[in-house]
Design a protein around this nucleic acid. Sequence first.
DNA 1: GCCAACGTTGGC
DNA 2: GCCAACGTTGGC
Length: 133
Amino acid sequence: MAYWLMKSEPEAYSWEQLVKDGSTEWDGVRNNAARLHLKAMVPGDQALFYHSGDARAVVGIMEISRGPQADGADGQWVSVQVKPVAPLAKPVTLKEMKAEPRLAEMQMIRQSRLSVSPVTDAEWAVLTGLAKG
DNA sequence: GCCAACGTTGGC
DNA sequence: GCCAACGTTGGC
């Protein structure tokens, strides 16, 4: 099983909204690197939900509930379906992540604009550990 | 409000 | 095919 990190501005679509909705289509991604990550997703994979903008923290864990399908008329882009698994007991802020040496190589730290990025098993363990406080 | 990073567009 | 200009994202 693979791990991912997906970001959204809470003003656009928040974790709370996802919980309310029960699941959502993660669409509108129009970046090639992010597209490749979406295409690599398999149902059952887990993903961190990161709030960008003012919040700047990982707030919850999602599961990929359906693999990639075409997003848009030209078939060039894809979306996946996600559902919430659990909120983090304690959100992990970007500041904490940057202060943690074991997360220094995280793709989202190295390339902050990338909206969908892979997370290694080790990084996942560290991050969920931080979330327990 | 500013700026860095990065992607895209368009002229050549 | 190159590269300057421009737009967008996201952190500070």
